[in-house]
Protein backbone atom coordinates (compact mmCIF):
# COMPACT_ATOMS: atom_id res chain seq x y z
CA UNK A 1 0.00 0.00 0.00
CA UNK A 2 2.88 2.35 0.72
CA UNK A 3 4.24 1.53 -2.72
CA UNK A 4 0.99 2.43 -4.48
CA UNK A 5 0.75 5.79 -2.74
CA UNK A 6 4.44 6.46 -3.43
CA UNK A 7 3.99 5.67 -7.11
CA UNK A 8 0.93 7.94 -7.32
CA UNK A 9 2.92 10.76 -5.74
CA UNK A 10 5.84 10.21 -8.13
CA UNK A 11 3.52 10.29 -11.17
CA UNK A 12 1.92 13.48 -9.86
CA UNK A 13 5.33 15.06 -9.38
CA UNK A 14 6.23 14.19 -12.98
CA UNK A 15 2.98 15.78 -14.24
CA UNK A 16 3.61 18.89 -12.14
CA UNK A 17 7.15 19.08 -13.48
CA UNK A 18 5.77 18.95 -17.03
CA UNK A 19 3.38 21.78 -16.13
CA UNK A 20 6.28 23.76 -14.66
CA UNK A 21 8.20 23.41 -17.92
CA UNK A 22 5.19 24.08 -20.18
CA UNK A 23 3.36 26.62 -18.05
CA UNK A 24 2.57 29.75 -20.03
CA UNK A 25 2.67 32.17 -17.12
CA UNK A 26 5.04 32.47 -14.20
CA UNK A 27 2.17 31.70 -11.81
CA UNK A 28 1.61 28.31 -13.43
CA UNK A 29 5.23 27.51 -12.76
CA UNK A 30 4.98 28.69 -9.14
CA UNK A 31 1.85 26.59 -8.67
CA UNK A 32 3.57 23.51 -10.09
CA UNK A 33 6.68 23.99 -7.95
CA UNK A 34 4.50 24.50 -4.87
CA UNK A 35 2.66 21.26 -5.65
CA UNK A 36 5.95 19.42 -6.09
CA UNK A 37 7.16 20.71 -2.73
CA UNK A 38 4.03 19.59 -0.89
CA UNK A 39 4.24 16.20 -2.57
CA UNK A 40 7.90 15.95 -1.51
CA UNK A 41 6.85 16.40 2.13
CA UNK A 42 4.40 13.50 1.88
CA UNK A 43 6.89 11.45 -0.14
CA UNK A 44 9.55 11.74 2.59
CA UNK A 45 7.03 10.67 5.23
CA UNK A 46 5.91 7.72 3.08
CA UNK A 47 9.50 6.66 2.37
CA UNK A 48 10.21 6.67 6.09
CA UNK A 49 7.41 4.14 6.60
CA UNK A 50 8.33 2.21 3.45
CA UNK A 51 11.93 1.65 4.53
CA UNK A 52 11.04 1.15 8.19
CA UNK A 53 12.82 4.29 9.39
CA UNK A 54 10.20 6.72 10.75
CA UNK A 55 12.97 9.18 11.72
CA UNK A 56 12.44 10.70 8.27
CA UNK A 57 9.36 12.44 9.67
CA UNK A 58 11.57 15.13 11.20
CA UNK A 59 12.94 15.92 7.75
CA UNK A 60 9.39 16.03 6.36
CA UNK A 61 8.34 18.46 9.10
CA UNK A 62 11.29 20.77 8.40
CA UNK A 63 10.58 20.57 4.66
CA UNK A 64 6.93 21.56 5.20
CA UNK A 65 8.06 24.60 7.22
CA UNK A 66 10.61 25.74 4.62
CA UNK A 67 8.22 25.18 1.71
CA UNK A 68 5.61 27.66 2.92
CA UNK A 69 8.12 30.45 3.58
CA UNK A 70 9.75 29.89 0.19
CA UNK A 71 6.52 30.01 -1.80
CA UNK A 72 5.32 33.16 -0.02
CA UNK A 73 8.70 34.84 -0.61
CA UNK A 74 8.64 33.96 -4.34
CA UNK A 75 5.07 35.24 -4.65
CA UNK A 76 5.92 38.49 -2.92
CA UNK A 77 8.89 38.96 -5.22
CA UNK A 78 6.86 38.39 -8.38
CA UNK A 79 4.00 40.58 -7.15
CA UNK A 80 6.03 43.61 -6.08
CA UNK A 81 9.52 43.00 -7.54
CA UNK A 82 10.75 44.01 -4.11
CA UNK A 83 11.00 42.22 -0.78
CA UNK A 84 10.81 45.39 1.29
CA UNK A 85 7.56 46.78 -0.13
CA UNK A 86 4.48 46.68 2.01
CA UNK A 87 1.60 44.58 0.77
CA UNK A 88 -0.86 47.46 0.99
CA UNK A 89 -1.80 49.43 -2.12
CA UNK A 90 -4.29 52.24 -2.47
CA UNK A 91 -7.56 50.89 -3.98
CA UNK A 92 -7.54 53.13 -7.05
CA UNK A 93 -3.78 53.29 -7.60
CA UNK A 94 -2.43 51.71 -10.80
CA UNK A 95 -0.28 48.69 -10.30
CA UNK A 96 3.29 49.86 -9.81
CA UNK A 97 5.15 46.84 -11.06
CA UNK A 98 3.32 45.00 -13.75
CA UNK A 99 5.02 42.35 -15.83
CA UNK A 100 4.38 43.23 -19.46
CA UNK A 101 6.65 40.57 -20.87
CA UNK A 102 4.22 37.66 -20.58
CA UNK A 103 0.82 39.33 -20.52
CA UNK A 104 -1.32 39.25 -23.67
CA UNK A 105 -1.94 42.69 -25.20
CA UNK A 106 -5.66 42.75 -24.56
CA UNK A 107 -5.02 42.29 -20.84
CA UNK A 108 -2.57 45.18 -20.87
CA UNK A 109 -5.23 47.27 -22.58
CA UNK A 110 -7.82 46.31 -19.97
CA UNK A 111 -5.45 47.11 -17.13
CA UNK A 112 -4.48 50.47 -18.61
CA UNK A 113 -8.11 51.50 -18.97
CA UNK A 114 -9.21 49.95 -15.73
CA UNK A 115 -6.59 49.40 -13.03
CA UNK A 116 -8.95 47.90 -10.45
CA UNK A 117 -9.55 44.21 -11.20
CA UNK A 118 -12.73 44.05 -9.10
CA UNK A 119 -14.43 46.72 -11.21
CA UNK A 120 -13.59 44.91 -14.44
CA UNK A 121 -14.87 41.63 -13.13
CA UNK A 122 -18.24 43.19 -12.38
CA UNK A 123 -18.38 44.45 -15.95
CA UNK A 124 -18.30 48.16 -15.00
CA UNK A 125 -16.11 50.71 -16.74
Amino acid sequence: MYTVATLAILVTMALALARAVLGPTVFDRILAVNTIATKTTILIALLGFLTGRPDFLDIALAYALINFIGSIAILKFFKYRDFSRSGWLEPDAPHPHRMPNWMPPEVIEILDNNPDPEKHREGGK
Binding site: L31, S71, L75, K79, H95, R98, M103, I108, L111
Partner: peptide
Protein backbone atom coordinates in the same frame (compact mmCIF):
# COMPACT_ATOMS: atom_id res chain seq x y z
CA UNK B 1 -0.99 32.83 -5.56
CA UNK B 2 -4.47 33.44 -7.01
CA UNK B 3 -4.51 37.00 -5.69
CA UNK B 4 -1.07 37.74 -7.13
CA UNK B 5 -2.15 36.32 -10.50
CA UNK B 6 -5.38 38.34 -10.53
CA UNK B 7 -3.43 41.44 -9.54
CA UNK B 8 -0.87 40.91 -12.30
CA UNK B 9 -3.58 40.73 -14.95
CA UNK B 10 -4.37 37.03 -15.49
Amino acid sequence: LAKAALFAGA
